[in-house]
């Protein structure tokens, strides 16, 4: 992937930014190693604490700026959970909020220069998506029992089509965690790689003004993508959750 320039001064290594490095030396990345992954996840936690705990410490009736942002995020996700999953879904609001905040802050922190984007790694997003998938499946069987399988049986379709539709529904159900995770990692990965590739051309004097403009433009786009992907991941989580806790919609 790393495009080595042909000795012309190009040094385009778009994938180097995703390398996991132990922070305190060492050759091998063990599961417990403190690495840049640990650092940037910890910074995400720090940002969340600063926004939601420190920012709301005064519990003012007339909120400060930080507190109103925290309340805005709270209200946004709360309403999303309530509208999409219905009233029964509200008790899973803290879980959805955790996912949203982690993804949002990881995406945004990943956009800082020299930073490390934890959500660009499939390992992270696969775990996030599998947690939703397994959680929804377990919850669905716990709440609806065998009736949970009814969502694969499209009762509004003609009888002859139903087995075929059921097969398609089952396949699409199992594809969910794949698309759910690859969408997030792919978006973040692609955006960061594109910025790096374009920035690599900055050594070419003729191209450098264009590079500055392009990197600025793509950076703005990536800010949008960072927020939108966090939103998309969260609302899909809510949609999947509705299958388990909401009324039958199929």
């Amino acid at each position: 992937m790393a495009t080595e320039g042909e000795g012309s001064g190009f040094a385009i290594h778009p994938m180097d930014q995703f390398v996991i490095k132990p922070l305190f030396g060492g050759e091998h990345v063990h599961w417990y190693t403190i690495s840049n992954v640990t650092l940037w996840m910890a910074l995400a936690v720090l940002c969340i604490v600063l926004l939601l705990v420190v920012g709301t410490a005064k519990r003012s009736i007339i909120p400060s700026r930080v507190q109103s942002v925290a309340e805005l995020v709270y209200g946004f996700i709360y309403n999303m959970v309530e509208e999409v999953t219905g009233h029964d879904g509200v008790k899973y609001f803290p879980y959805v909020m955790t996912l949203f905040l982690f993804i949002l802050f990881s995406n945004l922190l990943g956009l800082l220069p020299m930073s490390f984007a934890t959500t660009s790694h499939v390992a992270v997003t696969v775990v996030l998506a599998l947690m939703v998938f397994v959680g929804v499946t377990v919850l669905g069987f716990m709440r609806k029992g065998v009736g949970f399988l009814g969502m694969f049986w499209v009762s509004s379709a003609p009888l002859a089509l139903r087995p075929i539709l059921a097969l398609i529904e089952v396949i699409s159900y199992f594809v969910r965690p794949v698309s759910h995770s690859i969408r997030l990692a792919g978006n973040i990965l692609a955006g960061h790689a594109v910025i790096k590739v374009i920035a690599g051309f900055a050594t070419l004097v003729v191209a450098s003004p264009f590079v500055v403009g392009a990197v600025g433009a793509i950076y703005g786009l990536e800010l949008l993508v960072a927020v939108v992907q966090a939103y998309v991941f969260t609302i899909l989580t809510c949609v999947y959750l509705r299958d388990a806790v909401g009324d039958a919609h199929h």
């Binding site: 091998h28 690495s35 996840m41 775990v127």
Partner: peptide, 15 residues
């Protein structure tokens, strides 16, 4: 680096 599965336990643990 995403497909370097040797780092997956590390990432999953810290995640």
């Amino acid at each position: 680096p995403q497909l370097d599965f040797s780092t997956w336990p590390h990432q999953i643990f810290w995640l």
